[in-house]
Design a binder for these strands. Structure first.
Length: 495
RNA sequence: GCUCCCGUAGUGUAGACCGGCCAAUCAUUCUAGCCUUUCGAGCUAGGGACUCGGGUUCGAAUCCCGACGGGAGCACCA
């Protein structure tokens, strides 16, 4: 899979150019991340440009989301929207004068031309070519219109678009990830580059912007691979130097189809709301199609901080094949990052989730909350899990009485054991309500009566759950009074 | 239909450039055991892959060709 590529990079200028036509997508996040990493690694600049030439679909709400989520992920940019810079504007809708200028230049130099063909006739021709088994391309009808004819049509206000003259040749470029890639230009022909002088289309606007922002390396998704020759045609027509290109493999859904709405969550905000940590998502995403170098005899570390990732990052190790988004792995990475968090950080990050479920009032006792969270931190995959895990510490559990009965035991035994426990624990002093003391008192009895027989109903009475932390951990936190009260409730249930 | 890209366990990957050290690495997942009242965590063990067919070679996961499979693109979207 490895292809040798040249790599002597210094002070690169790279960019992420999202279009605000949807919420910040996990795929865009990855492209942003690799660009950011590349810039940091080689002491370059990372630029954020908003591609909002599609007036119909672009929304400010999406732009805000993109910026917010990038910040959340810990990405910082040197130039771009919100931070400014010397090569702006960084929003395509504000660069219209620039596009217009080059459009005129291209037409004057006869590298581009007016095309008066209607969309309908083009569609028919396209279908014909497809049925003939040819690659659909413009037939060049308007390519050599005389100046008189053009003037005439313009005067009569015949609608037009602007097309670039594509040379009949092969174009190849050296992709940073894929090595040499070659395309035959005759297959796509003269592309429309603008609908009008102030209505540039994507491929043209990108080229103008990248050139003006002095972008040295264009790192983007593989879906842009076949746009690259079209853009190179423009660089050549404009007599500009082409940047380096690098095409990242796509992120795929588990069925290997393109990551899309069909596969659950695709927006970064959604993962954030579900309780994934920014550093975990960062860690996970970077491992989609990339791995640090394995040193002989060394176990590869997969739980990495941003700094560690930066340390071992190398563009040469990016894979070519699409990477499947594996939620299991994300969950594991997230739980590992949660374990690394300090208890105070964990509380701070969990609180919004807890408050949403239980309300704010419940969390006035910080010490109590701290103990509860400490007890569960190793069981948490996502912060949102915490809500279910610790509910019984804040609300009285509700459960069917059958749950109190251990395996094949009977209600009578359960009743007797709960009654026994109430008496046993009532005699204990408040001070002795610690994990150790409780074990000393209760365990010998559990051995006599059967561990499950005694401990299972104890735990269920306290937590109301089939799976929960152990009774000796729960009791000290709940305290003697609450413990006894819950046991009495259990007793009533089985009466 | 045409073009381009890709093809190592369920998943992410190492190995490939420079063929032998590969009866193939690491992680995750899965299974079992230990621990344990349950679950989780932890520990231990195990399962699981070079897409196929030719060629080159003493020797191929690795080089070459072909097939097959998957993906992306082919707009007056970005």
């Amino acid at each position: 899979m490895m292809t040798p590529r040249k790599e002597t990079v210094k002070n690169p200028r790279v960019r992420i150019a999202p279009s605000p036509t949807g919420y910040f997508h996990i795929g865009t996040a990855r492209t942003a991340l690799f660009n950011w990493l590349f810039a940091k690694k080689y002491d370059g600049k990372f630029i954020v440009r908003i591609e909002d030439t599609d007036k119909e679909r672009s929304k400010i709400e999406f732009e805000k989301d993109i910026i917010e989520q990038m910040r959340w992920l810990g990405l910082t940019w040197d130039e771009g929207v919100e931070v400014g810079g010397d090569f702006g504007p960084y929003r395509q809708s504000e660069c219209l004068d620039l596009y217009e200028k080059y459009l005129h230049q291209l037409i004057e130099k006869k590298r581009a031309y007016y095309c008066f063909c209607s969309a309908e006739e083009l569609e028919i021709k396209k279908q014909e070519m497809m049925t003939r088994g040819e690659s659909p391309r413009y037939d060049g009808s308007c390519r050599n219109l005389s100046a008189d004819v053009i003037e005439e049509k313009l005067k009569n206000k015949i609608p037009y678009v602007i097309r670039i003259k594509t040379p009949d040749k092969k174009i190849s470029f050296n992709d940073m990830i894929r090595g040499k890639v070659e395309f035959d230009c005759s297959l796509f022909g003269d592309q429309v580059i603008a609908k009008g002088f102030r209505e540039p289309l994507y491929n043209f606007a990108v080229v103008v912007d990248d050139h003006h922002m002095r972008i040295s390396h264009v790192i983007r998704g593989e879906d842009h691979l076949s746009n690259t020759p079209k853009q190179i045609v423009l660089y050549e027509a404009l007599e500009w130097e082409t940047p380096e290109f690098g095409h990242l493999p796509l992120i795929l859904a588990p069925d290997k189809s393109k990551m899309s709405k069909r596969f659950g969550d695709v927006s970064v905000a959604e993962y954030r709301r579900t309780g994934y940590l920014a550093e975990a998502l960062f860690n996970f995403i970077v491992f989609l199609g990339w791995h640090p170098e394995e040193k002989p005899g060394e176990v590869i570390k997969e739980i990495l901080t941003k700094e560690e990732i930066l340390e071992s990052f190398d563009m040469k190790r990016v894979q070519k094949g699409g990477a499947i988004f594996n939620v299991d792995k994300l969950n594991w990475i997230n739980s590992e990052h949660i374990k690394k968090l300090s208890i105070n950080d964990l509380i701070e990050k969990s609180l919004p989730f807890l408050e949403e479920s239980f309300g704010k009032e419940i969390f006035t006792d910080q010490k109590y909350l701290k103990k509860v969270i400490e007890l569960h931190r190793e069981r948490v995959k996502k912060l949102s899990d915490l809500t279910e895990l610790i509910g019984y510490f804040f609300n009285l559990p509700d459960y069917p009485k059958e749950l109190l009965v251990w395996k094949d035991s009977i209600l009578e035994n359960t009743k007797g054991n709960i009654d026994f426990l109430i008496n046993l624990l009532s005699d204990l002093k408040n001070d002795n309500f610690t994990k150790n003391q409780l074990e000393v008192i209760v365990m010998p009895e559990a051995e006599k009566r059967g561990r499950g027989e005694l401990l299972w109903p104890l735990r269920v009475a306290l937590s109301g759950m089939k799976n929960s932390a152990g009774p000796f951990e729960i009791m000290p936190i709940l305290g003697k009074k609450e413990t006894l009260s819950r046991l009495k409730i259990a007793l009533e249930k089985v009466q």
